[in-house]
């Protein structure tokens, strides 16, 4: 984690994403994952033909994007009643431990709430201990679904 002045919570706003935010989001994501995925992020910005409600929120400090979150309501996938899925969250590495992730997650939950969902869910790599710690610190724990996979190479 790099050092940097942490923003005061009062200076942070949580907003719906704008097209001009995308390059900064791509930068934060590629800093975290070491892979730049511009096509993916632009596709999240302009989803075509989606039937499920989806939200793409960003944390701004002035003009600067310091975090983002993506979530949507998915119904009856794998037999699950409608629930709010968090499928991406990221905070600029130099702005962590300042509560930005909690603010983003809280804002997403407020978007989910009017849809009537009672549960939020996410999936992450088993070795992502820091991210897993974050979700657990927000009250999340292992749920009733388990992910299985197999190689299809012979």
């Amino acid at each position: 984690m790099t050092s940097g002045a942490q923003p005061s919570q009062a200076n942070i706003t949580i907003d719906d994403v704008c097209l001009t935010d995308i390059p900064q989001i791509i930068e934060i994501d590629s800093e975290i994952t070491k892979i730049a995925k511009p096509e993916l992020w632009y596709s999240y910005y302009a989803p075509a033909g989606r039937s499920q409600p989806r939200w793409f929120l960003v944390a701004h400090e002035g003009e600067r994007v310091v975090g983002y979150i993506l979530g949507e309501v998915r119904a009856w996938e794998f037999g699950s009643p409608p629930c709010g899925w968090i499928f991406a969250i990221g905070v600029s590495p130099d702005q962590r431990i300042g509560g930005i992730g909690s603010r983003l997650l809280g804002a997403m939950i407020e978007r989910f709430r009017p849809t009537g969902v009672k549960t939020i869910r996410t999936m992450l790599h088993i070795d992502e201990h820091v991210l897993m710690s974050f979700f657990r610190s927000q009250g999340m724990a292992a749920g009733p679904f388990i992910q299985l996979e197999a190689s299809i190479d012979l």
Binding site: I126, H129, S133, R136, A142
Partner: peptide, 19 residues
């Protein structure tokens, strides 16, 4: 073992207290 270790590693004392 891998699931157990990941669970133990991701639960801080503060998380237990807060929950």
């Amino acid at each position: 073992d891998r699931i157990t270790t990941a669970t133990l590693r991701s639960v801080t004392l503060q998380t237990i207290i807060r929950n």
